[in-house]
Amino acid sequence: MQEHFIPSPIHDRSAAVSIRFNLNGRDVDIPIDPTERLLDTLRYRLKLPGSKEGCGEGECGACTVIIDDLPANACLIPTFQVRGCKVRTIESIPASSLQPMLEAGATQCGACTPGVVVTANWIKEHSDVLASNTMRALMAGNLCRCTGYDGIIDGLEKWIGKPPGGRS
């Protein structure tokens, strides 16, 4: 193999598609590579790295964002599909609102946490879904390896203002 490395120009395959969508309340109009996943667009192009990549296969939910008012995995969405959509990321949720989650121990290593918080915040904003779904079922798309989930569920209960489950 070669002994000397010759730097090559960056292969910019972008600008093939231009798309417009609403991100955290602001309109953005950007050129994208059509192969780009929404997760990459957010993290690397728009410099919003709060959404994490845990698996790239739609299992762990660390990349959860809200698209047109529903949770979705940003790793499974081609960016061109969000044209005309409203996209909300973890960056739209103020840290000051998260005290109940903190107090309950909803985060440990923090890698799954932004996705957890996005889903939890959606549940909080749509608490009628709790009439026909348990919190544990609604949170099942967010894998956490640290907390055992109690900290997350307890935190969400506190956040929503529901009295805690009566467990010591």
């Binding site: 993290r43 790295p49 709060g50 959404s51 994490k52 990549e53 990321t89 973890i90 960056e91 949720i93 103020p94 840290a95 998260l98 005290q99 989650m101 903190l102 107090e103 121990g105 909803a106 985060t107 440990q108 290593c109 923090g110 890698a111 946490t113 932004p114 918080v117």
Partner: peptide, 19 residues
């Protein structure tokens, strides 16, 4: 409370791939 807790919860914590 966990020192870096709010930073993690709000997605502000920067892991290496985030930089």
């Amino acid at each position: 409370q966990r020192l870096e807790g709010l930073s993690k919860l709000s997605g502000a914590e920067r892991y290496l791939d985030d930089e």
